[in-house]
């Protein structure tokens, strides 16, 4: 069964955003730009996740990297998370008329969706009283990007959270994540 949840906005980490924007020494102008962008992006996010628990016999779990990843785990979760389409609109808007803003908004979007994933994994930990192993996503490490198709079929992402997969396996809205997360007993 697919579950769908809306998460309340996780706290914003400005340091993370600046790091994503490629700024490692923060002069007042950069920080001012960040604050302006945060103000413009405020209220433009929806925090949505859909997920399902994978049974041990799920065909996906036959793949070697997933088998290895889940081997210490008692629960196996696949999820998709998105912060919605409005941030993409802002990024597109400024991509043409102010690349500096577009860059910063892009970084804000990345920080937001990562924070959403963190919040979701923490909620799983609370619900099952277990420890979440660091999540893994298709296209990173040994997990092929082509897994996206199976994940989208399994999670009915478009209907559940409005997330779609383009022909080059690009997710739209772009500030979205699909991932596997395993839960193991707390030691």
């Amino acid at each position: 069964m697919i579950f769908r949840i809306s998460v309340s906005a996780p706290p914003i980490c400005e340091g993370e955003i600046l790091r994503y924007a490629g700024s490692f020494q923060n002069d007042p102008q950069t920080v001012a730009l960040l604050r302006e962008c945060l103000e413009e992006a405020e209220g433009k996010f929806t925090y949505r996740v859909c997920y399902r628990l994978l049974e041990e016999d799920n065909a996906l779990l036959a793949s070697e990297p997933l088998k290895a990843y889940f081997s210490p785990c008692k629960k196996r979760v696949v999820f998709a998370a998105t912060v919605g389409v409005e941030i993409d609109r802002l990024i597109t808007k400024y991509g043409r008329i102010s690349p500096a803003r577009a860059l910063m908004l892009q970084a804000i979007g990345t920080e937001r969706v990562e924070a959403l994933c963190d919040a979701f994994c923490q909620s799983l930990e609370r619900e099952y009283q277990m420890k979440a192993v660091r999540r893994i996503s298709p296209g990173y490490g040994k997990l092929p990007l082509s897994l996206q198709k199976e994940i989208f079929d399994l999670l009915d992402c478009q209907r559940q959270i409005g997330l779609t997969l383009g022909s080059s396996l690009l997710m739209c809205p772009t500030k979205s994540v699909t991932a596997f997360v395993g839960l193991k007993e707390r030691t």
Binding site: L18, A21, G22, S23, T30, L33, L103
Partner: peptide, 13 residues
């Protein structure tokens, strides 16, 4: 690397 990307872009704009 004394100026970072956001600053470079703001100057360019």
């Amino acid at each position: 690397k004394t100026v970072y990307l956001p600053q470079l872009l703001m100057s360019a704009e």
